[in-house]
Amino acid sequence: MKEKIKKIGKWPSLPAIALLAILFVYNGVLNPGFFKKSTFFTFLLSSTPMICIVIGVCTCKIVGGIDISLGNLLSLINVTMAYLFSSSDMAAPVIILIGLLIGLGGGLLNGICIGVLRVNPLLATFATSPVYWGLALWIMPTPGGYGVPRELISFVNKTHFGVLPTAVAALAILVILWLLYMKSIYGISIYGIGGNEQSAYVSGMNVARSKVLAHVFGGFCAFVGGLVATGLIASGDPNIGTEFSLKAVTAVVIGGVALSGGEGDVWGALAGGFFLSTILIAIISSKVPTFAQNFANYSIMLCGLVLAVVIKLGAEYYRTRAKKKQSEEVRQ
């Protein structure tokens, strides 16, 4: 039993989940309407696009890299689909397929620059980000594209079995895919590569391929997010995803995914993402004065970051102390 508790204590995702729980409880107490079915579902639904990006960034981070272009890739996908829906006669499945191809293509571009051409991941995606955003602005300078089909809108907003909005189901699918991927030989290699690239390479893992795949998966997450976003806002908006990239990185850090890679899992990232979404709601429930809202938002974000990191450092400290104690006992 003690072993089990110790194990949970070491779980890198724990701080993020704890933070999320605290904020949920706080919010629920101040505003019981938050947990009403329709409100909570809309909260989940409107957070879903960003959370998709969080999952994508989480994957890239575990490989020891990062991706800050996924938010703008999502915007590009959303804008392209909305544009095609309203200005062309293509069938809906074709348009959605095009969206998928854009997502995979963007992810592939990132992956090639990072995995094959060995450009620093932060800088590579720092460069591809304006490429995607610029394309999105070029295609649709103003939000518009009102031709999104009713079926897509209602599909995204629908609730299955009375309890599960489709959007959340999309998240669940991504998470399941992620778990399957990680358990597979490709996935395990990701952790190895993230932890130590040299030794992973030496032990025969195809580092370049794993990195490319990780970023393509990120692109796929952007596609899912873009599809949900299109159904959610029923139009195209070139700026819808601009804020998502940096927020996602913050969420992933809070979620305990180490910057150096090789550690952490998707649950912490999810918790971190929802934590960030809930902050802005909590600010409403707390009736923070308007001009202080910005400051409050970032303060809490920073507190969350510090907490998550400090807890992790603390855990490491206790672990090394316990190891020292063990080795001393062994010697005696």
Binding site: P130, G134, I139
Partner: peptide, 25 residues
């Protein structure tokens, strides 16, 4: 504006590919 942003991104990407690559493993 969109085209300008797009081109700036391409320029940056180009510079990175020429200039900023880590050593082969």
């Amino acid at each position: 504006a969109g085209a300008r942003t797009f081109i700036q991104g391409l320029v940056l990407l180009g510079v990175l590919i020429i200039n900023n690559r880590s050593a082969k493993l």
